[in-house]
Design a protein around this nucleic acid. Structure first.
Length: 285
DNA sequence: ACGCGTGCCTGTTGGC
DNA sequence: TGCCAACAGGCACGCG
């Protein structure tokens, strides 16, 4: 399940494949994979990809008019392609003319300056992923974008304290993209274990020491996971088709019933905020 | 404003 | 061995 470290890895592996390439055309095979607010993917034709960034779990491909500007007013020319992989989405560069797969939802045809071409597929078995081609003004109309919380790797303790104030279950707060952007079920559980905090604890009731421990755990877990190119449970692959390796370092996720690596007590499983949650009843208080 | 339950979607898993 | 309910999970949405 792509969360911040997986999306960061996709961004890093995708960028060299597409940066500087011109979009020659687009095809949508499943219209529901395109966000209702999006400009038509066809409006990307003629634009060049100038870079690839990440914000939370979103992949952002910046686009700009090339040497021969396409017709259209600024209001209808996208500046960014935002892609959310959700659970099973993948961005896959393939040779030009490659046939779509059973789970291809849309693709872009890309051309380099020297005339070589390729096709960038968005494949997504579960069909939860979305794409939004947007202007800056359009992005601001997107509630999800506008309300995204800060990046956890750029967050200080004082701001973290404000974000957690009045919140109930701390795990629910971590999963809320309006609190911090990019955390999903895996890294919520891993961070809470590393910080020694029970996932059900009211977030607003954590003291300064606990908040510091949690913020530090988030930073540590995310940084380690990025260094391992993310976690691959089943579906996740980067833009080169490679799996991550951080799943081999999980302390709790998917390990219920197995011994806690810290204390040896068996890890327990419960449901918090509607999500499967694995934790150590002995280490996490 | 917060939090909970449900639906979306499809492949995989586990129980009988 | 076969079938089917349960499950996985991020987010939108409706409700209290």
């Amino acid at each position: 399940m792509p969360e911040l470290p997986e999306v960061e890895t996709v961004v890093r592996t995708l960028a060299p494949h597409v940066t500087g390439w011109r979009i020659a055309g687009a095809e949508v095979l499943r219209p529901s994979a395109v966000h209702p607010l999006s400009l038509p993917l066809g409006s990307l034709a003629g634009l060049a990809v100038t870079g690839v960034r990440r914000r939370g779990k979103l992949i952002l491909m910046d686009v700009a008019p090339g040497s021969d500007p396409a017709p259209g007013s600024a209001a209808t020319v996208p500046t960014v392609i935002a892609v959310h992989l959700r659970m099973t989405g993948r961005l896959l560069p393939r040779p030009a003319g490659s046939a779509p797969g059973a789970y291809t939802r849309w693709f872009l045809d890309l051309e380099a300056q020297d005339g070589t071409a390729q096709r960038l597929f968005f494949d997504d078995t579960r069909a939860f992923g979305t794409v939004l081609a947007a202007t800056p003004a359009l992005l601001e109309q997107w509630d999800f974008w506008r309300s995204l919380g800060p990046e956890p790797l750029e967050l200080d303790e004082a701001a973290f304290a404000v974000l957690l104030r009045g919140r109930r279950a701390v795990k629910a707060a971590l999963l809320d993209q309006r609190v911090v952007a990019g955390i999903g079920n895996i890294y919520a559980d891993e961070s809470l274990h590393r910080a020694g905090i029970d996932p059900r604890r009211p977030a607003g009731g954590l003291d300064a020491r606990e908040r510091r421990a949690l913020l530090g755990a988030l930073r540590d877990v995310l940084t380690l996971a990025i260094a391992q190119c993310g976690s691959s449970i089943r579906d996740y692959r980067d833009a080169d088709g490679n799996a991550g390796a951080f799943q081999n370092s999980f302390a709790v996720y998917g390990r219920d019933g197995e011994p806690c690596r810290a204390c040896g007590h068996p890890l327990a499983r419960m449901r918090v905020a509607g999500r499967a949650t694995v934790y150590c009843p002995h280490c996490q208080r």
